[in-house]
Structures are given as structure tokens and as C-alpha cells.
Amino acid sequence: MSSSSASSSLYLFTTSQTPLPPRYPHPSRPKLILPSLVHRTLHNSLDGDTPSISFNHGDGKGTVIIPHPDGLVKHDLPSSNNSTSQSQSHNPSPNGNEIPENGLSDESSKYLVDSELTVKLHLVSPSSPSNYLERVKESLGILEKYKGLSKEKVDTLLIGFKGVDYKGKKTETDPDSDSQADADGEYTIDKQLESTILDTWKEILEEKGLVGEQTKLGSLYSPLNLLKQLVSPSQGKGDVKGIKVNALDTPDCHHLPKEYTGYARGEGVELWAGGGGEGSDPLPSPHLHNLLQEFSSKLSSLTGGTIDSSLLGKLIGVDGDGLKFEKRGAVDVRWVLSYTLVSKTRNVVKDKGYIVAADLYP
């Protein structure tokens, strides 16, 4: 489906870490954590007499936000631009107190220094490199606007693509994935997808002001061949610095090939091991369609019919062998962003969650 034909955009923020398993049939693998968190959020937001939802008809293509932004925790970490614009020596505030030269109150400064923000962005809907870059900008803009987490204050930004989910061991090819092991056991991805990823990263690395100057850029689940090209993207064509981190959807790095870990160590690339549950497609579009189906009538009423209940009203089933959904549906997930805000001094999580961006079709 083309996003140009979408009737509205949906932005959905998870509000709880307590899962509520979906009630509809779905593929048993991969085991994903996000559908259950979205299910919980939809019930928290839409059950009851006062649903928490924002709908703006805008330019004819409505924007739906669940829950209502007023109910979200907003941190308001100041951006470097804000600090610069406010920074003046002995500049009094309206209440007569002097504003520090960095433009921040003591409380804000301490909060800023103490916080470490990690962002993972999954680009899941097929697109061109330039459109992928716009989605990166969109996602960081949404994070800043509604959660108060400035792009300049992102410590690490990790970006992944659907179809790239290397776990460090040879497995059966996922029927819904373009990734596979070749005859020599080397994990590879579809050549067209690889070309798109490399072109997208070239644009990301060359984009000025995309994130803060100190932000570390990294990839999600890149196999060795792709990782090498992302670490040294310029290949003699200018001074383009590459990525510094590669996160893996695996509990540890023990079963990674020695040449993989050896290369990363030699190039100073950090390998991050994760517990799994996200994969390269954390919330497949049929999952989101079926999650919204339970609330289709209410969503139609709350949006004045912009969300068509007749399209969301029918569940998408699974095929005969139960391995995948039968079809897509009336929803197309564009990207999924996860954020984790940690107190460095106390080593505790201040806030974490997911943001899902999707197109809803007429």
C-alpha cells in the first residue's frame, strides 16, 4: 500500500510494561513482546467513559494519537539549541533570579548530566533511502515533541531494517525474512535490500544536525559483511565516519563467530547483546490491524468515521500451517521506536517505552 493513499496517521505510545496477550490467532514464532504491550495500552487508553485519544483532522488526512499526549510523561530535556538561544551572562529570569550561563537551571542541569538516552529505531515499511531518512527525522521529532527527549541528547541511536535480524548462528530461513545463510554458511541479506540500507546509511551519516555531536550511531542485527561496510562507508570517498555500535537480538555474544567478534574488537565497534523479543519487525502490520479491530467501532466514533470500522472490523487470520498471517490489512506500520532513559548515577531506568507510527487506509 502507498502512504499517499492513507486516510490518517496513527501514533501509538505504550504506557505500561505489563503485557496483555492478544486474544486473536497469530503465528507462534517469532515471539514478540510489543503486541502484548500495545494491547495493554489500547485497553488503558480506550476503555471507560473518557477515552484517552487525540484526533486532528488537519489537512484532510487525520492524525490519531493514542493515548492523548496530555497524559504522557514528558521529560523536557533541553536541546543544545535551546541552551544556546537562552544563554546570556547575568540574564535575569522573570522572577528576578539569574539564569546560569548555560541557560539551564541547576535542577535541569543535574537531570541532563545524570541521564543516558538510548533509542532504537526499526524501519519496517519498504521505502527509498530519502524516505527512510525522513522517517528517521519524523521519529526523532515525535520523540522530542511528545516525550520531551531532544534529539541532541540521544546518547546512542541504533537503526535497523526489516529483513535484517542476524542472531549469530545459522538457522532455517525465516519465510517472512530476506535473510539467509549462503552455501558457505555466511549470513547474507537480499542484495537489493543491502543496497538500500547502504544508501540510507550514507544519507544518515552525511546529514548534518540529525542528532547531537556526541551521539553514537549504530545498527541493529547487522551480519559481518554488512557491518564492515557500515563501519567504513566512505571507501576512499571522503571522510565519512561510520557506525560505532551493533546491537544483536541474542542474550549474549558467546555463539558469535570469532571472525565477527574479532573484527568488531579490532575496529572498536561495540557489540550489544539483547534478550530478544523485538526482531527486525517488532509489530507486524497484521498484528496492529488485529489489535485495533477490537476497538474499531469506538475508534470510528471517536474520529468521526475517519477510521473506517468496516475495514478494521474483520480479523486477519493465519494460514493453514500457522506460520504467517494470511494477508496485510487496513494498517501499515512505518516505523517502531523504543527509548530507554537511564539514571547513570543510580543505574535505574527513569522511563522506557515504544512509539509506533502507522498509516491507516480508507
Rank of each mutant, 00 (worst) to 15 (best):
L158F: 06
A358E: 04
G320W: 01
P35L: 03
K147P: 03
W272A: 07
Q229W: 02
V333T: 11
R29L: 11
E326L: 09
V113D: 08
G209L: 04
Q180M: 09
S85I: 12
H57C: 08
K216N: 03
I53F: 03
T50K: 13
K147C: 07
S179Y: 07
F295H: 11
N347R: 15
A357V: 13
P69Q: 06
V113Q: 10
T345C: 01
R346F: 08
I65W: 11
T261K: 05
G163A: 09
L104P: 01
I99C: 05
S5P: 01
F325I: 09
T173H: 05
P30C: 04
S301C: 01
N56E: 15
L117Q: 07
T63S: 12
V124W: 07
Y24D: 09
V113H: 01
Q229C: 08
S179W: 01
T200D: 05
L205N: 06
D184P: 02
K169Q: 09
E270W: 00
L104G: 00
Y361R: 02
S232T: 12
S301N: 13
S177Q: 02
I53D: 05
Y132P: 00
L230I: 07
T63D: 08
K237I: 04
T118P: 00
E138D: 12
T173S: 10
E134L: 14
K208Q: 14
K241D: 07
D176A: 13
A183Y: 10
D351N: 10
S301F: 12
L37A: 08
G96C: 09
H254S: 13
D249G: 08
V331K: 04
I189C: 13
P67Q: 05
P21R: 13
K298T: 12
D252T: 15
P19I: 05
L157R: 06
Q180Y: 14
L224T: 03
S115L: 04
P22M: 11
P35T: 06
K228H: 08
E207L: 04
D321Q: 11
V164D: 07
R23W: 12
L198D: 05
E172C: 08
S300A: 11
Y111S: 11
S232Q: 12
D114M: 03
G103K: 07
S93C: 10
K237L: 10
K145Q: 14
P100S: 10
G71I: 01
Q17V: 09
L302P: 05
S125G: 02
F325E: 10
S7Q: 06
K162Q: 13
K151G: 03
E203V: 01
K151F: 07
V119I: 15
K167L: 03
G305Y: 02
T84C: 10
Q229Y: 04
N246D: 15
R135P: 06
G48A: 02
G274H: 11
L291E: 04
Q86N: 14
S45I: 01
K314H: 13
I65E: 02
P21D: 14
F161S: 01
I243W: 06
R29M: 08
D321E: 15
N102D: 15
S234Q: 04
Q88A: 15
G148R: 01
A357Y: 06
G160L: 12
F13P: 08
S89K: 15
S115A: 12
P286V: 05
G317K: 12
A358R: 01
K208M: 00
S79W: 04
L220F: 12
T188C: 06
S179K: 02
S2I: 06
N97Y: 03
S79G: 15
D178F: 12
D76T: 08
T63L: 14
P35W: 07
T41Y: 02
E203C: 05
H75N: 03
